[in-house]
Design a binder for these strands. Structure first.
Length: 173
DNA sequence: CGCGTTTGACCCGCGC
DNA sequence: GCGCGGGTCAAACGCG
C-alpha cells in the first residue's frame, strides 16, 4: 500500500540542485512519487510548504497531502563516522547526505514504504506529548535510518524523516 | 531458536 | 563542569 506524495525537500543549497531554474523546478513541483520511489530519489528541491497542500485522496487508511521539509527544521549536513568498540566516534567524519522529512496524514505511524525496519529507540521529545521512534533498515550494513513522530500540534499527521541512502534495492539483501 | 520490540542506561554536543 | 536534549545501545522480553 502506497500513497502518492508530493515531496519537496531541501538539503542542498539551491545552487546544487539539479536544474535550479524555473523549468525543472516547476516540473518537479508537479511530480508525484511513491514513497519507495522517493527513497531512491537523489535530487533536492527547495520548497515552500504553502504550495503543497494538495489533498490527494488515496486509500482509506491514510492519505498524504502535505510535505513539510525546510531548512529550519532539518539540518543540512549529515555525517557518518565509524564507531569503535568503546563507542567513541572517530574523528574523520565523512559527509553523506540525503535527509528528508515529510508529513503524512495518517492514523498509523509506520507506513509501508517497501523496506523492512527494525526499531532501535524511542524518545520523548521536549515540548511535545508525543514520543519519537527510531528505526534502522533491517538490511545488514545498510546505513539508512528513519524516525517517526506524530506532529505535536496536529496529531493526525505523522512526520517521517529518512536519512541515508540504501545500499541495496528493496527490502531484501 | 531467530528475529523484532521494549526500555532504561548510556553517550555526546552544546550552552550556561 | 554540569545539566539538558537528542540519539543509540543492549539486555530482557515477546512471539511465531
Amino acid at each position: 500500500m502506497h500513497t502518492h506524495l508530493i515531496i519537496m525537500a531541501d538539503n542542498h543549497p539551491y545552487t546544487n540542485m539539479p536544474g535550479s531554474h524555473d523549468s525543472s523546478m516547476s516540473n518537479a513541483h508537479e511530480m508525484n512519487f511513491e514513497v519507495s520511489d522517493f527513497l531512491e530519489f537523489s535530487g533536492w528541491i527547495e520548497e515552500d510548504p504553502g504550495l503543497y497542500s494538495t489533498p490527494e485522496s488515496c486509500n482509506p487508511s491514510y492519505t498524504t497531502n502535505e510535505v513539510v521539509v525546510n531548512s529550519s527544521g532539518i539540518s543540512s549536513n549529515l555525517y557518518e563516522g565509524t564507531i569503535d568498540r568503546n563507542r567513541s566516534v572517530s574523528k574523520e567524519k565523512k559527509e553523506i547526505k540525503d535527509k528528508v522529512a515529510f508529513k503524512t496524514k495518517s492514523e498509523v505511524e509506520v507506513l509501508d514504504d517497501g523496506f523492512k525496519w527494525r526499531k532501535y529507540g524511542k524518545k520523548k521529545v521536549k515540548n511535545s506529548p508525543n514520543p519519537r521512534n527510531y528505526y534502522r533498515c533491517s538490511v545488514e550494513r545498510c546505513p539508512v535510518k528513519k524516525r517517526v513522530e506524530r506532529d505535536k500540534e496536529d496529531p493526525c499527521y505523522v512526520v517521517t524523516t529518512y536519512e541515508g541512502i540504501h545500499n541495496h534495492q528493496g527490502p531484501h539483501p
